[in-house]
Design a protein around this nucleic acid. Structure first.
Lengths: 201, 201
DNA sequence: GTCTATATGACGATAGAC
DNA sequence: GTCTATCGTCATATAGAC
């Protein structure tokens, strides 16, 4: 069986979902840009657009996870390793002409409330990302709870900074995130929690 | 002139854009749920859907800005004030049944690459939000550059944490963000910047 | 200002030949 | 597996009466 056509469909869908979201991407555009035969779509994906999108989400999730894991493993120190990921993300974002970096964010927001299948697929992808960061931070000496907390916040920061960077068409928000994440990762969490002190600078 | 109809159109559009994004929201649904007369839409918004969406984005931007500014002003200490905003956001998110909190994120992602008008409207809204946080942090003693950097990262963290929270249908990511933001705001930024040290815990 | 009716096209999905 | 043709529905937008 020739699954080149299938792969082309998924790859094109992944790319279009990232830039336009779920409802903004039509099947006709997917057919056209993938070069895949129109009749093949419902052969490989009997459930149509939704099933195709779910496959694309899974692929993008794996891509994000592998991209992150690879860069994290290039550096031993966890703070430097996370920084390496953010540098890689900024490079990728620039190379994509201010379109890339958060391949699932639009789909997740559009469909979370109304489409359980796609919402679940996005959840799995994001959890994989968070797990990769968590493992690196734990291996680097952070306590488990804090490692998970930091990993979640790092992923959230990335998604949000990509939103701002895409909107501003600039890498600036991502660059600012990079600096503050470095500060946060070097920061101790044992300081007193509440209070109205005005000590900083 | 009766602008009640106009306000209803904008309010309904704001709500639907938040939950479904731009392409996922049809004019017929806006008409139906707003109860506005169908003929009025192109009277108030000659440019149709795009102009209506731009008005909705501006309204949501003002709403976010005012919500944030009000909560920030309830507390003097900037760290506690930011925490107050995050608590308010978590409450709002819960009350909205895991749908609210990032009213522009979906539209911004969908349209940043292809629709300059809506992209610009989103940029203005986000900048307003960042400015509100920046002003509070500067008034609280943070140096201007760092205040702006923190404000941007806080807004990014909020947007990203809402994505994760909506996807997981849980307030957990927002709660984790809240904790780490408190830590970050209490953290000094004068420590050495680079290096492969493994000092944390 | 608001109405109805409709133009025009894109959408997702399907049928049946090959 | 892939093709073409087409169904039915929805979309945005417009025209013209009131």
């Amino acid at each position: 069986m020739d699954n080149t056509t299938r792969q082309q469909l998924v790859a094109t869908t992944s790319r279009l979902l990232e830039a336009q979201g779920y409802h903004g991407t039509g099947l006709s555009q997917i057919i056209r840009e993938s070069g895949a035969p129109r009749g093949s779509l419902y052969y490989y994906f009997p459930d149509g657009k939704e099933e195709l999108a779910a496959a694309a989400i899974a692929e993008q999730g794996a891509r994000m996870r592998d991209f992150t894991a690879q860069l994290l493993n290039e550096v031993a120190d966890p703070v430097a390793a996370v920084d390496r990921v953010l540098v890689g993300l900024i490079e990728h974002f620039s190379a994509s002409q201010y379109c890339g970096g958060a391949p699932l964010a639009a789909v997740a927001l559009e469909t979370a409330a109304h489409n359980p299948r796609l919402r679940t697929a996005c959840t799995a992808a994001y959890n994989d990302m968070i797990d990769v960061f968590t493992a690196k931070l734990r291996a680097g000496g952070y306590p488990p709870t804090r490692a998970m907390r930091l990993a979640t916040v790092i992923v959230a920061g990335i998604e949000g900074a990509v939103i701002l960077s895409r909107t501003q068409q600039s890498t600036a928000p991502l660059a600012l995130l990079r600096e503050e994440v470095s500060i946060l990762l070097r920061c101790d969490n044992t300081s007193p929690q509440a209070g109205n002190t005005v000590a900083h600078r």
